[in-house]
Write a protein that binds this DNA or RNA. Structure first.
Lengths: 207, 207
DNA sequence: GTCTATAGGATGATAGAC
DNA sequence: GTCTATCATCCTATAGAC
């Protein structure tokens, strides 16, 4: 058994810890550059390990990305389940889930990685995984949140609009472009301030 | 001056015609594989020309993609303007624009290419172009369609949900997966049949 | 205007030392 | 468990013939 406080060598840690570290780095890198655009070397640098190590630990770039996706889906669903398990009184579930969703943007890369998978539907492995995750979300909204069809539709649509605006970095122009300011203000009522905080946060991905 | 009906050589046509041909091919290819994932060689094959010719005509892969984006934005805006210029009576503008939007899916790759640009916000050139196009759409909905803020928000959100479902090829599972059937039915009321037609159409991009 | 040939650079993956 | 070295592949872009 190994101590968390005094690992024998800083450069030598349990496989599970490294794994988690790399998955976090990969989430940020894939979110920023996309599945094809990101390189295993970028992931390795962000995680502080060597490029071959990343490939060796996950088998391939594709398998790494699939794990990133699974992790993101798990986080998303468990976050929503936490809200449903302990809802605030006097606030609609839809609003609470919406807030929880925007809060997830703090995890730079998480929702962006999902978004990246959404445009890869024609890839056999990745497309299938993306659809599975999206359908799981639908099922949760229907069965656990007890949403009506219209609510589901509106909730998903709102989420995709947020994803899109974040994906295209619209908040970058919030201050410089009045039109962008107006769009963000009208399209994302009450979710704006959080989104802008995220936008100002330093990117965790080195250039 | 050259005749449209009798080009001297089938393999030799006016620059403008080839240009249009390549842009159409590029739209399909970029939509299917994304900006990074698509290769200039795939575009060339789809257009029936050589790979260096594609690069030479547009300067670079990036410039080609930017032209694809501009074309797509133009098509989108002019389609909407056509609806606004001759609206059907007794049908809300929002509904008519929504229908026009879904009809655009028939142009395989057009909306998908836009979607691909949405996830490339961190790319300086492409991100800027994507934001500009999105903002132009916002401006049109506000000034020409005279939408209220809520209408704009809902309209854009609905569009992004459609993009996402199309991007991840959810309609591929329409028949095999009951959950997918239900999701598509509830999330896209009255737009479904058109979307499924598109899904069944043969891909214009060779494997 | 269009092609063939190819240079030049990057990247995913493997082999093997420590 | 982790790294260095390196291979093989692929892809954009250029050069130059026709």
């Amino acid at each position: 058994m190994s101590s968390v406080n005094a690992p024998e060598h800083a450069s030598r840690m349990k496989s599970e810890d490294r794994r988690e570290l790399i998955l976090e780095a990969a989430t940020a890198v894939f979110g920023e550059f996309g599945y094809v655009g990101a390189t295993t070397d970028q992931v390795a640098r962000a995680a502080g390990v060597s490029q071959p190590y990343v490939v060796r630990m996950f088998g391939s770039k594709e398998k790494l990305f699939l794990e990133v996706l699974d992790r993101a889906h798990d986080r998303l669903l468990s976050t929503f389940r936490a809200v449903l398990a302990a809802p605030e009184p006097d606030v609609s579930i839809s609003t609470q889930l919406g807030r929880a969703y925007v809060d997830l943007l703090a995890d730079r890369g998480l929702l962006l990685s999902l978004m990246q998978a959404f445009v890869l539907g024609s890839d056999p492995a990745i497309g299938a995984r993306a659809r599975r995750g999206f359908l799981a979300m639908y099922e949760m909204l229907r069965d656990e949140a007890k949403f009506e069809p219209v609510e589901i539709s509106q909730f998903l649509a709102g989420g995709m609009l947020i994803n899109t605006l974040v994906g295209m970095r619209m908040s970058d122009e919030f201050e410089s472009n009045p039109l962008a300011t107006e769009l963000l203000t009208t399209a994302l009522p009450e979710k704006l301030d959080c989104l802008l905080d995220i936008g100002r946060a330093p990117s965790s991905v080195a250039p």
